[in-house]
Design a protein around this nucleic acid. Sequence first.
DNA 1: TAGTTGACCGGAA
DNA 2: ATTCCGGCCAACT
Length: 98
Amino acid sequence: MAIKLYGLRLDVNMKNKFFTQKVLNVVSQIPRGATLTYKEVAAQAGSPNASRVVGSILKQNYDLSIPCHRVIRSDGKIGEYNRGAQKKKQLLKEEGAL
DNA sequence: TAGTTGACCGGAA
DNA sequence: ATTCCGGCCAACT
């Protein structure tokens, strides 16, 4: 559904490709040994309340050049991972991020 | 195009 | 410490 507001088309229920690109970019910039939370990534990408969406985006991404294992939950838990939560924990430990 | 689904978050019980 | 619940919003169907 599209809503017109002051000449702007706000598409409800439709994708925001800018957000997705920004998320991937932010995650790819996380240095070795550092971690960000899903919420922080969402904020960096311009949508502070879209932490859950960050997860679904990273879930879709299989590009190894994007270190999505460095994104963890704000409550201190590790969170999920494409190749298994154990693998994620192991990678972080190897980088000294734990 | 409308409805459903989560790699989440923060507060409440 | 641990579930439970409502809100969030791009992707999926």
